[in-house]
Design a protein around this nucleic acid. Structure first.
Length: 580
RNA sequence: CGGGGAGUCGCACAGUCCGGUAGUGCACGAGCUUUGGGUGCUCGUCGUCGCGGGUUCAAAUCCCGCCUCCCCGACCA
């Protein structure tokens, strides 16, 4: 592609609303333009990258035996009404009406629609297993779209759905997808972890997220440095096999429980500072609403409660932090003075908190705390792992491993749904014994448009994007300097030879100064930059610099006669380099 | 939904308090200049000042109402 004939509107300034690297760079480098809140145009470069990502996803899905289909984006309401999600989804569902006033919506996900295909078309165990997938626009009326392509109201997703005769089959399908996902993310050149995850409102059991490790990511995850344990903090368990020496090592105090006056000192920091105690000696007591009940969760002052784990422990879908009014009603004291001693209600004590040798906690009386508090002697409760795991915690999965926290962007999610949708919608098949049984389903998503942005979040520097070869809009950015006809002729020859070799070249043939071209090349981020000028031509060589090379002087000189072959080989190597 | 902020040329912003010819930089067009990291100079084009109403001789500016967007939080298959 000739730059002069392309549409690559680079800018020096980014829109004011772009707050993260991928949004700024995608805008500045001319890949995308904003159309509305959370809605974007893909300009030619952006669309090329999107198609590269789609291509990798398609190849690996096909390789894994999945069958590509295309379901509608515009959906009659009846399907979501059938499973109850018409109501459950709430405001996130983009609803509309046709001229007759009938309810429609734009699909945020397609379990119902694919299950409808299955119930009509899959009848026998002989038809199984099946895995149907699509690459489709999804619509979610996000409360707050943000981050450019990272969280939009309209986005492109690959979603796949597996159908099996039984749980074993579903697990095999899940495992097949897991392997396909590993190949996909490896080929995209991403650093990621597969983590245990909450299956959320979509329902289901076994589930894993593919989290791309990025400091600015929305999700917090922990991973073991020794084994392959990794989990979203929503579900991560802080190990207790190797509790830090500060807790549990000391014998419980023999001193009797005592009241201490702590006027106006409610927070953990305040009280610990006021009493000269460490945060780890505090027993943080938070009240949650679980259904109709008020439940107190007790963790060490230096720990955080994990609401998802607490909810699982209590056997409810969700828990909510109690309001100030609820707290006062339940404890008889202002917020900040709650404690488990003599608390009338259910108490869940984190394992680490139960080991505190001499705790300080609220007295359920405004401006008073209790010290020398010992679990078992002064208060009781169900001991569970309900705190949020964090850096330094022991790994729950291996001996001696330590957890480290990361931020991540969720790029993929795989899970086994079971018969949640098939049973509700009557998607059954006849097994070998002539029995009607519900199909066992799994579903597998990849945020394709999000991946375009995610890749940049992980691959950029101050000057611009640094695409991995596999998803770069072009393989080589050819820069010619000056208007010398011999230079242009040599460049044209190279451009054509590379084209014949299947190498995708963007040739910056514009009448611009070298500085402008180099700046744009860095911004656009094509992995290899090839420069040809009068000086080089005289010396019989072109210059090749990798975008990853920070030093502008460290360019490789390649004799012009060999250039096409050498460059084509470089591209091939980069495309074949798969770290898995 | 709670808190904060913003809508002025394609982009980034000033002007609003204190009403009086709508500005600057980038981008864009012309010319000269320059030619291996966003060259310098000159000239030029581009505006329903978010929308609707009101006050006034006169409104980007004051008043009333509405809309949209952004940031933080809550939420997030």
């Amino acid at each position: 592609m000739l730059f002069s004939r392309a549409l690559i509107p680079t800018t020096k300034e980014a829109p004011a609303d772009a707050t993260n690297a991928s949004h700024v760079l995608l805008s500045r480098a001319g890949y995308i333009r904003r159309v509305g809140a959370g809605i974007y145009d893909f300009l030619p470069l952006g669309y090329r990258v999107l198609r590269k990502v789609e291509g990798i996803v398609r190849q690996e899905m096909d390789r894994a035996g999945a069958l590509e289909i295309l379901m509608p984006a515009l959906l009659p309401a009846e399907y979501f009404k059938e499973t109850g999600r018409w109501d459950l989804y709430g405001d996130v569902l983009l609803r509309l009406h046709d001229r007759k006033g009938a309810d429609y919506h734009l699909g945020p996900t397609h379990e119902e629609i694919v299950t409808d295909i299955a119930r009509r078309e899959i009848r026998s165990w002989r038809d199984l297993p099946k895995n149907l997938y699509q690459v489709q626009l999804k619509f979610r009326d996000e409360p707050r779209p943000r981050g450019g392509l990272l969280r939009g109201r309209e986005f492109i997703m690959k979603d796949a759905y597996s159908f099996d005769a039984d749980e074993d089959g579903a697990r095999a399908s899940y495992e097949t997808m897991r392997r396909a996902y590993v190949r996909i993310f490896d080929r995209m050149g991403l650093t990621y972890r597969m983590v245990q995850a909450d299956s959320g409102a979509i329902g289901g059991s076994t589930s894993a997220e593919f989290q791309v490790l990025v400091g600015s990511g929305e999700d917090a995850i922990v991973a073991c440095q020794k084994c392959d344990y990794a989990a979203n903090v929503e579900v991560a368990v802080a190990g207790h096999s190797a509790a830090p020496a500060s807790a549990g090592a000391e014998p419980a105090t023999k001193d009797a429980i005592a009241r201490v006056h702590t006027p106006g000192k409610g927070g953990i920091e305040d009280v610990a500072g006021f009493l000269g105690a460490s945060k780890g000696a505090m027993l943080k007591s938070l009240l949650f609403l679980a259904g109709d009940a008020v439940v107190m969760a007790v963790v060490r002052g230096d720990h955080e409660v994990n609401p998802v784990r607490l909810a699982r422990t209590l056997g409810v879908d969700e828990v909510f932090l109690a309001s100030e009014a609820d707290v006062e009603k339940a404890t008889g004291a202002k917020v900040g003075f709650a404690g488990p001693v003599a608390f009338k209600g259910k108490v869940v004590v984190d394992r680490a908190a139960s080991l505190v040798a001499s705790g300080i906690t609220g007295a359920n009386e405004t401006d008073w705390h209790l010290k020398n508090v010992v679990y078992g002697r002064d208060y009781l409760g169900d001991i569970e792992d309900v705190r949020q795991a964090t850096t330094g915690d022991a790994c729950p999965n291996c001996d001696g491993g330590t957890l480290v926290s990361y931020r991540g962007i969720e790029a993929g999610h795989i899970f086994i749904l079971g018969t949640k949708y098939s049973a509700t919608m009557g998607a059954t098949f006849v097994d070998e014994k002539q029995q009607q049984r519900a199909l066992v389903m799994g579903c597998y998503g990849i945020g394709v448009s999000r991946l375009v942005a995610t890749t940049i979040e992980q691959h950029h520097d101050d000057d611009g994007i640094r695409w991995p070869m596999s998803v770069a809009p072009y393989h080589i950015h050819l820069v010619t300097l000056g208007k010398d006809e011999a230079v242009i002729a040599a460049a044209r020859s190279l451009y054509e030879k590379l084209g014949h070799a299947g190498v995708e070249v963007l040739w910056d043939d514009r009448d611009e100064r070298p500085g402008v071209k180099f700046k744009d090349a860095d911004l656009i981020g094509i992995p290899l930059r090839v420069t040809l000028g009068a000086k080089g031509l005289a010396a019989g060589s072109i210059e090749c610099k990798a975008r990853l090379e920070p030093d502008p002087k460290k360019a490789e000189l390649i004799p012009i006669a060999e250039a096409a072959a050498v460059l084509a080989a470089k591209v091939e190597v980069a495309l074949g380099a798969r770290p898995g």
